[in-house]
Design a protein around this nucleic acid. Structure first.
Length: 499
RNA sequence: GGUCCUGUGGCCGAGUGGCUAGGCAGAGCUCUGCAAAAGCUUCUACACCAGUUCGAAUCUGGUCGGGACCUCCA
């Protein structure tokens, strides 16, 4: 069964074949560290973490590159041409790089909370000014960019004319054509610098008050946003690489510009498979600064936001995201998150129960059920290979959960399933839940706490034996108040979990 | 205005022609000192109208609604 990926470029699901056998190059647009990450940002990084994990599981040697945009882009291109990062830095009375460091650290912390594996290379825009300048020089030399007042602009019209003949028109990714755009692009002041409204900045002349600035052949300035990804992707993944990921909102103009720049520079279209995740919405509206509806990750984890009924654990968010398809919008809501929280807990407990099942029977007592479960397990792979349908894998898992619990609680005969089936379940659940989905249930595994709880459980047991239900209920109820749930198992033992 | 996506039961959300998606919530039952947990059973659905078809949530056309991008954006 080959892996199929929906390619935004062709708008079809394609069988994934890497450029070089056994190796995969993957680039994902990282955060702009001028502020705190919010819930919306969680989506691409979790989505592509699963992609990365799965490719590695398939045995590929993957180089995963995810940039940090620390040079800022324009607030309003052509009008004020201010660097977003330095503007805010003045307000906060911080050095620009201090601000960048602060939010980079916070971002890394959040990624860790989500159990995302770090990329292999995490290049910064400011660390690759030289490469960006080099790329811009090449584009100018080839005649696809021009210099005006210390700024450099990409000549979209010329590019479109020449490369349309080669089947690479400007707009190929986002499915729009240049002529229509020219009519609809908004009027900007400072427009006279550009030959064409659709042209975009490769390098921007820095006004005196601009703090972040670098020397260049065109004077002091700073790079345009789009060029950083092209420069860093080329440097670390080559002139052509396998997968480029990012949010759908980056498709135009960011990714479109990347294609144009890289194609001019490297004489080849840069990316084989473009993958775009959809947005997280709140009341049906995209979460974003401009809509003033963001829930920061720190607020989410602590519950400190008016829209939140409670704090949500990072794993709840991860599970919530995996329960939908990455190309669909996902609507935030307390009810939805609490559903995910409970569902994940239930799945995890069943998973733990599964690992404890130990049986010897070669033959399944219930052949039909045994067969059905084998089919559902086989579908895990089928679904994930179908453009990463994590939601369907989880649905299948939940079909199997009752069977696991029933065997564990002896509501089903111990020999219901065959030894091989149980072994396969144990192996595949571990593979998908932990390795591919990157889920883990974080409990306070404090030994002292466990001993104390065990003591309370023992006291309660003695009280129950004496039919002193007042005492036994007191222990159970008050522990519940403290967030510890006691469960009387069928075999007489008592287990607990943290709510 | 242009390009594109979307409308599924109380909530979230799979699903592209015929098969129970799944989770949470609700109802009933079993187990239990009681409860919880667990298991079993169960209710609520495909925006609207027309068409194609033996058959449509799924395809086509239209109507209405929501959204994204066209400007920084995950």
């Amino acid at each position: 069964m080959p892996l199929k990926i929906y390619n935004s470029l062709t708008r079809t699901k394609e069988i994934f074949e890497p450029l070089n056998k056994g190796y995969v190059g993957m680039y994902v647009c990282g955060p702009t560290v001028s502020g705190e990450s919010h819930l919306g940002h969680a989506r691409p990084y979790i989505t592509f973490d699963v992609v990365y994990r799965y490719l590695k599981h398939l045995g590929y040697q993957v180089r995963y590159v995810r940039n940090i945009t620390d040079a800022g882009h324009f607030e309003e291109e052509g009008r004020v041409a201010e660097d977003k990062i330095s503007t805010k830095a003045i307000l906060e009375k911080l050095e620009p790089m201090e601000l960048v460091q602060k939010y980079t650290n916070l971002f890394h912390w959040a990624m860790k909370q989500f159990n995302n594996i770090e990329p292999n290379i995490e290049p910064t825009a400011t660390g690759h000014i030289v490469e960006q300048i080099g790329m811009i020089e090449k584009i100018i030399a080839d005649g696809y960019a021009y210099v005006v007042n210390g700024s450099v602009y990409f000549d979209v019209n010329k590019y479109n004319e020449d490369f349309s003949k080669k089947g690479l028109p400007y707009g190929i990714l986002s499915g729009r054509n240049l002529e229509e755009q020219l009519d609809t692009t908004r009027d900007l002041d400072n427009q006279h610098e550009k030959r064409n409204k659709a042209d975009f900045a490769l390098w921007k002349n820095a006004p005196p008050e601009h703090i972040m600035r670098w020397q260049s052949p065109w004077g002091e300035g700073f790079p345009g946003w789009h060029i950083e990804c092209s420069a860093m992707a080329t440097k670390y993944l080559g002139t052509q690489f396998d997968i480029h990921g990012g949010g759908m909102d980056l498709q135009f103009p960011h990714h479109e510009c990347e294609i144009a720049q890289s194609t001019v520079c490297n004489h080849t279209a840069p990316v084989r498979y473009w993958m775009h995740n959809n947005m997280i919405t709140i009341n049906g509206r995209k979460m974003g600064k401009s809509y003033n509806n963001v829930i920061k990750l720190t607020e989410l984890f602590t519950g400190s936001h008016p829209l939140l009924e409670k704090a949500y654990h990072p794993m709840t968010i991860r599970f919530f995201i995996l329960q939908s398809h990455y190309r669909s919008t996902l609507d935030f809501g307390n009810e939805a998150l609490q559903a995910s929280e409970k569902a994940f807990k239930r799945l995890w407990e069943a998973y733990e129960n599964l690992q404890k099942i130990s049986i010897d029977n070669i033959e399944a007592a219930d052949v039909e059920l045994d067969k059905k479960i084998n089919k559902q397990i086989a579908e895990f792979t089928e679904f994930i290979e179908d453009d990463f349908s994590t939601a369907k894998v989880l649905a299948n898992m939940f079909e199997i959960v009752p069977v696991i619990n029933a065997i564990k609680n002896k509501q089903l005969a111990q020999n219901t399933l065959s030894k091989n089936t149980i072994a396969l379940m144990q192996q595949q659940f571990t593979l998908f839940i932990e390795e591919i989905f990157g889920l883990k249930f974080q409990e306070d595994n404090n030994e002292k706490l466990s001993d104390i709880l065990q003591l309370l459980v023992d006291i309660r047991k003695e009280a129950k034996a004496k039919k002193d239900f007042v005492t036994s209920d007191k222990i159970r109820n008050e522990l519940a108040q403290l967030g510890v749930l006691l469960k009387d198992e069928k075999d007489g033992t008592v287990s607990w979990s943290f709510i």
